[in-house]
Design a protein around this nucleic acid. Structure first.
Lengths: 221, 221
DNA sequence: TAGTGTGAATTTCTTCACAGCG
DNA sequence: CGCTGTGAAGAAATTCACACTA
């Protein structure tokens, strides 16, 4: 989905697994383990060991043969690769159920994504707060984005409003968008978009569920 | 992530795009268009035309050369492939913000995923209703699953509770699980699991956002 | 000895390009 | 003519297997 950026490339597939490794390493830190083998890390992340070693090798040699990887060192390194060494102020647009859930979702602030602003088009919602953050009107996006130095926008509006909100975000200066609305949005070159459609995953499950009557044995991930 | 099921295989990558096509076709139906070219469909789904044609070709020849695809026919066909010709009763475990958002999320029932039951471990929540569906205690999973003929479970609990809930679901007879908890769960062979981690996508955005200062020109999706 | 790092083999996915059909 | 359907080429990702080393 994304062109390879400056410098020589880390495969997209590898990038998409880094967050999994990061989470696993955080668990290992909590358990106060200081080293980890590719095999163990693979098991925790739900992939296989060869993949872990290959993935990590793109960043250089961080392991010790015969021992494994230093948990703390690797954690720091992946965090740096992911750009998670500083906070990212974000704005969420659309304060319906999903928007509220996202605003409340601990997993964001945990990992450096600070909900700096919330916007909605409904005047009744404007002025109320979620998790201590006031809901502003979507017309104030411009001001909020520049004042709070926001680069990342999250769209949690209904599908029909998504493109308009995306346009406003881009105009305001947002350069990365995470889109939860079940529609494709188009943006100018240079703007990054990723999409999550909650129902898509269920449909994929349904596909495999439907066609396994015939004694198929499938493996969970 | 999932072994190829009975019959000759449709590539995983293709399966994961079917929901996109389905959504686009539904929009075309709403606009009362009766045919669509691979190019137009590609644009709507956010992929390229060759991919659309290749994907659809796995199901046989459904297009008309010189014209395109019949919207209604293709829609029906993909819906059948995805197993969406009948309703799937689902249970959601974990009625925090995310669980509530999912229960409210129109995108599910729209597409045949009926929220048949909700469970939580917190006795204070048990007995209240969300969208007209009562919240039951997680101990009643067994009864609910068999009585309501539920095959699909959605986990929206905190990470630490996810494995336990998954075990209970499997014991109760659930065969497909969609896991929103930020942790890997393990299940017996024959149980399908898909995972959605809301924060993972943000971290991937962060990766690319971080490394584009150097005049890189990236393309949004 | 245990476990990394990595070329090479393999598989999967994408894209091309054009023959063939309505 | 316009657009599908598809072999074949190309690219990307995964997996193998083993040399190497702390």
């Amino acid at each position: 989905m994304v062109g390879s950026p400056s410098g020589q490339s880390i495969p997209e597939a590898t990038v998409s697994r880094l967050p999994l490794y990061l989470r696993s390493l955080q668990e290992l830190m909590d358990e106060e383990l200081s080293t980890v083998s590719s095999e163990r890390l693979a098991e925790m992340a739900g992939v296989n060991a060869a993949k872990v070693r290959k993935d990590l090798s793109y960043f250089g040699s961080y392991g010790t043969r015969g021992v494994g990887y230093d948990v703390e060192y690797l954690l720091l390194h992946i965090r740096r690769e992911l750009g998670l060494t500083h906070d990212w102020p974000c704005v969420i647009a659309g304060m319906g159920n999903l928007g509220q859930a996202l605003a409340n979702y601990g997993g964001f602030s945990d990992r450096g994504f600070v909900i700096a602003a919330l916007v909605d088009a409904n005047p009744d919602k404007v002025g109320t707060t979620v998790e201590g953050v006031p809901i502003s009107h979507v017309d104030d996006l411009d001001d909020l984005v520049s004042r709070l130095d926001i680069h990342i926008g999250v769209i949690a509006t209904p599908a029909h409003a998504a493109q308009d909100v995306a346009d406003r975000m881009v105009a305001a200066g947002v350069t990365s968008i995470l889109n939860f609305a079940p529609t494709v949005i188009t943006v100018p070159d240079g703007i990054l978009v990723r999409k999550v459609d909650l129902a898509v995953e269920l449909q994929i499950l349904s596909f495999y569920q439907e066609r396994r009557q015939a004694g198929a044995s499938l493996t969970g991930a």
